[in-house]
């Protein structure tokens, strides 16, 4: 029941997170910034427009946004909240969870290549390169979660880590390190600064934005919505990692998670305001630093346990 409420809230509230990030960025820049609900307006505006496809594109371009959206929605349906596992969950669903995002990405990459534009080709190549490195970090994080887990390997049990499992004091360090590593993954996967700049209009520097330059109307609305939902879901994952287990009652739990996600949104806004974007050649180093952090977490955990 509470899981369903939370899932519905996720689907509706996801674009709000982008609005929060933009508001925080605007605050740091001394501007008013776009409205909190701007992405909703944009999505509705785009949905009302006609779909325009370039002459060179094929059916791939038409179906890929839907594939992307479906993958992200199913992935978010796999997310549990503490104490309330997803009805779709099963042993090992964490692999499916991350690969659904991978499916969404490969759909976007195919659609980008399908347009035959040089910009989109560059965007696709960058996306493929960086996501391949990120996968390494993701699996290190999964390894850590599996080590620490008391039960099976479903998302519900793996994310049921919290302070209660590791204990307080020094023993919490590995968990914090993993949280940091996942934060870096989150920023990279969701094309945020310092990896990508969602605000830029410069085609030559784009990653994600370059891939969707040729999409218009409802397709673009779907892509924007899927990106927002992905950000929401991964932020939810991050909240699960750091929030202590709370089963006071279902309503409070749902509220706590949503507040947690909003706080993470605000935090992303702060990061984007105080950091410039990294050079492309340095991005693999940044991602690999997340890998190192995750690896240290595993080592520390082993030390503390024995």
């Amino acid at each position: 029941m509470y899981w369903f409420i939370y899932f519905l809230i996720s689907l509706v509230a996801a674009p709000l997170l982008v609005g929060i990030i933009n508001k925080v960025k605007a605050f740091f820049a001394g501007r008013k910034g776009p409205r909190l609900l701007q992405l909703y307006f944009d999505i509705f505006k785009l949905l009302k427009k006609d779909r325009i496809l370039s002459n060179t594109s094929t059916i791939i371009m038409e179906i890929c946004p839907i594939v992307n959206l479906t993958a992200v929605v199913v992935a978010s349906a796999l997310m549990p909240i503490a104490g309330y596992p997803s009805p779709l969950g099963f042993e090992g669903d964490i692999i499916l969870f991350f690969y659904l995002f991978g499916l969404g990405r490969i759909a976007t990459i195919f659609a980008a290549l399908d347009t035959g534009s040089a910009f989109e080709g560059m965007g696709a190549s960058r996306e493929a390169q960086f996501s391949a490195i990120v996968e390494l970090v993701i699996f290190t994080i999964i390894t850590f979660l599996a080590l620490i887990s008391t039960g099976g390997f479903s998302l519900d049990l793996l994310l049921d880590v919290s302070i209660t499992n590791t204990g307080v004091g020094l023993a919490i360090t590995p968990l914090l390190l993993i949280t940091l590593a996942f934060l870096i993954v989150l920023l990279c996967e969701n094309c945020r600064v310092p990896f990508d700049d969602p605000e830029t209009h410069l085609e030559l520097t784009m990653i994600h934005e370059a891939m969707i330059l040729d999409n218009a109307g409802p397709d673009l609305a779907i892509i924007h919505y899927a990106a927002a939902l992905k950000l929401w879901t991964m932020s939810g994952f991050l909240v699960m990692l750091i929030l202590p287990k709370l089963i006071i009652n279902g309503f409070v739990t749902v509220c706590c998670y949503i507040i947690g996600i909003i706080v993470i949104g605000a935090f992303i806004g702060v990061v984007e305001s105080i950091l410039a974007r990294a050079r492309f050649v340095k991005i693999p180093q940044l991602i690999l630093s997340a890998f190192t952090i995750a690896l240290i977490a595993i080592l520390l955990h082993s030390i503390f346990r024995y």
């Binding site: 820049a29 001394g30 600064v193 605000e199 410069l202 984007e272 305001s273 950091l275 410039a276 974007r277």
Partner: peptide
């Protein structure tokens, strides 16, 4: 220049 490296505060202030 600040805007191009996604460093927003300087971009906004300088615009004003």
């Amino acid at each position: 220049l600040a805007g191009d490296v996604a460093y927003l505060p300087t971009m906004s202030y300088c615009g004003r």
